[in-house]
């Protein structure tokens, strides 16, 4: 039986193709570009003992722009430590609408959208907060409400990490609007706008 020898030339061409094919197959298995050795937010780190790549502020340091020396704005309190009844900036319609938006996100789960303290989390068993529409809370100064949001009060945890300062003030303005809305008489509505009452849904 005559056997045909494979020519060395063909063998070489074949070998080159096999190498190319294997190279093509092997690159698909590496994910170096997909998983680069860099830190993206919340990626764990093997370098630090607690495994976090995001480092907490070193104690006693102040981040740039966070000196927070405007006491009235950042604490809602006056020089005497008593809560102020003013706002640190002018309250406009936009501020109140922003407050409404933020209130519905962060406060309504417990306080409900009217502020009566019957939110879904309370219905699931959290301690019921007082309604905003009691005399004591109608009388409290703005700075008091700001302070409660910032530092918590009673069963309520603090919201300083979740809500930025400007938004806390916006929420205070909306809480005031809610209190007014639930305790208003027809005389509080400007005469020109009384016709809109009862039409519903008008913004």
């Amino acid at each position: 039986m005559p056997t045909e020898r494979i020519s060395p030339r063909l063998l070489r061409v074949l070998a080159v193709w096999v190498v190319i094919l294997m190279a093509a197959l092997s690159v698909a298995c590496r994910q170096d570009m997909q998983d680069q050795p860099k830190y993206i937010p919340l990626r764990p780190s093997g370098f630090f003992a607690d495994g976090r790549s995001e480092r907490p502020l070193v104690e006693g340091t102040v981040a740039r722009g966070h000196l927070d020396d405007d006491t009235a704005y950042y604490t809602g309190k006056g020089p005497d430590g008593k809560p102020l009844d003013t706002f640190p900036f002018t309250v406009t319609r936009d501020v109140i609408l922003r407050g409404q938006d933020r209130f519905n996100i962060y406060c309504a789960p417990c306080h409900d959208r009217l502020g009566t303290g019957d939110g879904m989390v309370v219905r699931r068993g959290y301690r019921k907060p007082p309604s905003y529409h009691i005399d004591r809370l109608r009388q409290v100064p703005n700075g008091y409400i700001f302070d409660v949001i910032t530092n918590g009060f009673g069963a309520m945890p603090d919201y300083s990490a979740q809500i930025p300062v400007a938004d806390r003030w916006a929420i205070v303005s909306y809480v005031r609007a809610l209190q007014l809305s639930q305790n208003a008489s027809i005389n509080d509505v400007p005469a020109a706008n009384r016709g809109q009452l009862g039409q519903g849904g008008a913004q």
Binding site: I105, Y106, P109, M120, V121, R124, A161
Partner: peptide
């Protein structure tokens, strides 16, 4: 419960 996404994902 109806919690908004942003309550947690601030």
């Amino acid at each position: 419960i109806g919690i908004d996404c942003r309550y947690c994902h601030t």
